[in-house]
């Protein structure tokens, strides 16, 4: 449906604006979540999220629906912006990782939940950056495997395999932590 919406952008500028607006509304938090997981810095995540949407808005007429879904296209732009930001800062995401906020895990859900999520967070930290990105795209941004494949420039089956490996590692890390 989103593909069709963005495809309208080719027909009429006003319709294109509306389609982009819908894409923005449906993807704003997802893009922030993905970028935030890569940069591990709230201020940088906000900056890059805004820059990614700005860049996508400027390029909206160049989007080709035949080359993939609009969300994959948008996340590709966000990914490049985030990686450029990491390059610009000249340091790895790990170096700027902010400490996990225990309060954000929801104290009302109980200590068991909080402890488990802390363990998951710690296990996530131990994953390789590429694996962590896969997890972010899948569970933070909510992309389908074919969309992830498009963003990363790999095949869908390869995406599934890599994702499975990352989840296995994560689970083992969680078990080890427990």
């Amino acid at each position: 449906m989103e593909q069709a919406l963005v495809a309208e952008a080719k027909d009429a500028p006003r319709a294109g604006d509306l389609a982009f607006d819908r894409l923005y509304r449906s993807s704003r938090d997802d893009v922030y979540a993905y970028v935030g997981s890569l940069l591990r810095n709230d201020a940088a995540a906000e900056e890059v999220t805004a820059a990614a949407f700005e860049r996508a808005y400027r390029k909206r007429n160049r989007f080709d629906p035949e080359r993939g879904e609009p969300r994959a296209w948008l996340f590709g732009i966000a990914r490049n912006a985030a990686l450029d930001e990491l390059r610009r800062r000249g340091r790895q995401a790990e170096l700027t990782a902010e400490p996990a906020d225990l309060d954000s895990f929801g104290a009302e859900e109980g200590a068991e939940h909080s402890e488990r999520r802390l363990a998951v967070s710690a296990a996530l930290e131990r994953l390789a950056p590429g694996e962590r990105e896969l997890i972010a795209l899948k569970f933070f941004a909510g992309l389908e495997n074919r969309e992830i494949a498009r963003v990363l420039g790999i095949s869908e089956s390869n995406t599934g395999t890599k994702l499975h490996r990352a989840m296995t590692k994560l689970r083992e890390a969680c078990d080890g932590h427990a």
Binding site: D21, Y24, R28, D29, Y32, A33, G36, S37, D42, A45, E46, T49, A50, F53, E54, Y57, F105, G106, R116, R117, V120, S121, L124, I135, F139, F140, M167, L170, R171, C174
Partner: peptide, 25 residues
């Protein structure tokens, strides 16, 4: 369960930032 835990770890934007971005959009 692991997937649910991961989703719960999902970073969320500040409401102020979200509002500002909405304005810019």
């Amino acid at each position: 369960k692991l997937a649910a835990d991961l989703r719960a770890l999902r970073p969320t934007p500040r409401p102020e930032f979200a509002a500002e971005l909405d304005e810019r959009a």
